[in-house]
C-alpha cells in the first residue's frame, strides 16, 4: 500500500515535470526584457566587461550576500559536528 502511494506520487510528479518542460518557451528563444537591459547597460552602469560579474555583485548583490551567509553557516555546522566530545560537555 505504501509503495503504491509512493509510485502514484512519483508518476504524478513526472507527468507534471514533462508537461511543464514541453510548455515553457521553445529552446533557444527566451523572452528576456530584463536581461536585454542588463546586457546593453552593464558596461556603462557598472564598468565591468564581464556581465555575469556585474549581475553577481551589482544588480543582484543580495543573492551573493545570502550565499556568503549559507557558506559560513555550513562551515560552522561541519566544525561543530566534528568537535571533540570533552569540549562539548564542558
Amino acid at each position: 500500500m505504501r509503495n503504491f502511494v509512493a509510485s502514484l506520487f512519483l508518476g504524478i510528479a513526472i507527468v507534471f515535470l514533462v508537461s511543464s518542460a514541453l510548455l515553457v518557451h521553445p529552446f533557444g528563444e527566451p523572452p528576456a526584457p530584463m536581461d536585454d537591459y542588463i546586457i546593453q547597460n552593464a558596461q556603462a552602469e557598472t564598468g565591468a566587461n564581464n556581465v555575469v560579474a556585474a549581475v553577481l555583485f551589482d544588480y543582484r548583490g543580495f543573492d551573493t550576500l545570502g550565499e556568503a551567509t549559507i557558506l559560513f553557516t555550513a562551515v560552522t555546522g561541519v566544525v561543530m559536528l566534528f568537535r571533540k566530545k570533552e569540549t562539548a560537555e564542558k
Binding site: T46, G47, A48, N49, A53, A54, F57, D58, T64, A68, L71, F72, A74, V75, V78, V79
Partner: peptide, 23 residues
C-alpha cells in the same frame, strides 16, 4: 574598470577558498 566589483571578487574568492578548505 569595474568599481567595487574586483574588490568584491577578491573578498568572495578569499571566503570561498577558506570555507571550502576548512570543510
Amino acid at each position: 574598470t569595474g568599481g567595487i566589483i574586483p574588490l568584491m571578487n577578491v573578498a568572495v574568492g578569499l571566503k570561498v577558498f577558506a570555507g571550502l578548505s576548512a570543510i
